[in-house]
Amino acid sequence: MPGSTPGLDPEQVRKAATALLKFVGSQREESKELLQDDEVFQLLISLSHTPQSKKSSKPVALPVPHSLYDYDGAEICLLVKDRKGEGHKEAKARVRQAEIGKIAKVVGLSKLRTKYESFEAKRQLCAQYDLFLADDRILPFLPKLLGKSFFKKKKQPIPLDLTRADWGAQVKRACSCTYLFRSPGSCLNIRVARSNFSERQCSENIIAVLQQVTAHIPKKWDNVQAVFLKTADSVALPLYQVLPEAVQKISA
């Protein structure tokens, strides 16, 4: 069930989404070179108290009304084991058999260790695909093999259970969600929309994410001090803020 978000004004959400869409549009018009990719809108959630939880490589799936990945041209990279019978050749055959068109690339662990060993190769791989999925059995090995680029861009691989037969259904579900990556800090960063969305689509995704994410925050909405919306290059537009004094009274 969605959580309660008292004080969050849907009209303020709508205004911020509208302003950010206009900003991205003006940036495109002013740019001498056409921007090839849509900008990703990020939700920044500042907490008044830092959660006492360890960093986890397994993300929390947050279903959204409007997929960030279900559009023409979206491409997915699937990371798999190298074990005989489960390597990239077998995975590519399964992808073709299941007709999962959005999976454009299948990469085995050995390729990550060799072909994508350098920082520049990792950076290019990160930039090349919209979403990364991975066999959940290799998830613990990936942070070291992929490097910092994936974490900075919030493109850590999403785990799939590839021992099951329903690969197509799992990929579809993965594309219908955005993801909360837990960290030991007091700020959460979640991808919520794209610049090709309408104002309504942006607003609906933002509200859906905020209503769900409270279940994964200690003290829930009472622990949220501020929420902002931004792109990688924009200022942070406020959606919700509470004075530190008010937070202290609530937490007391």
Rank of each mutant, 00 (worst) to 15 (best):
F132W: 02
E120S: 10
A208P: 01
E30F: 10
L160P: 13
K172G: 15
V107M: 00
A61P: 15
L237F: 14
E204V: 11
L180G: 04
R96C: 02
Q36L: 15
A193Y: 11
N196P: 03
I138L: 08
L146T: 10
K58Q: 07
F197R: 03
H49F: 13
E30Y: 11
K89W: 11
S48F: 12
S56G: 00
G147Y: 04
R113T: 06
Q42G: 09
K105E: 10
V224W: 12
K15P: 00
F181H: 13
L35F: 10
C177T: 13
V242G: 00
G25Q: 08
D9E: 08
H88G: 02
E75W: 04
L131Q: 07
N223P: 11
P244F: 00
E90Y: 12
V80L: 00
E39M: 05
I100G: 02
Y179M: 00
R96D: 05
L43P: 08
N223F: 13
D130T: 04
D166R: 09
A174C: 04
A121G: 02
S251K: 15
S53R: 13
V192C: 04
A246M: 14
A19T: 10
H216Q: 12
L160N: 06
A91E: 06
Y116H: 13
A165T: 09
C126I: 11
K249Y: 09
V40C: 14
G73R: 05
D166Q: 12
A174I: 10
L35G: 07
Y129E: 01
L34M: 11
K144M: 08
A134R: 03
A17Y: 09
T178F: 14
A19F: 03
L160A: 06
K122S: 01
A226H: 08
G73N: 06
K115R: 11
R96Y: 07
T18H: 11
V107F: 00
Y69F: 15
G147Q: 02
R182I: 06
R28G: 07
D166F: 08
L142K: 08
K153W: 09
L229V: 05
P218I: 06
V235W: 08
K155M: 06
P244R: 02
E33A: 07
K249D: 07
D135E: 14
L79V: 11
P59Q: 01
L109G: 10
E90V: 14
K54Q: 14
D233V: 12
A232N: 05
P2I: 11
K155D: 03
C202I: 08
S234P: 02
K15L: 09
K249Q: 14
S195N: 05
K153S: 14
A174E: 10
P238L: 10
D130V: 03
P159N: 01
L162M: 15
R113C: 05
Q12A: 13
A16V: 00
V213C: 00
A215N: 14
R194A: 03
E99N: 09
A169Q: 15
P51S: 04
K105Y: 01
S149V: 08
K58N: 04
V13G: 06
P244E: 01
Q36F: 13
D70V: 05
D9Q: 07
V227P: 09
L79I: 13
A165N: 09
Q124T: 07
L243H: 14
V235I: 09
A208T: 13
K153V: 07
D38I: 01
C126Q: 14
D161S: 07
V24M: 01
S56M: 05
L68H: 10
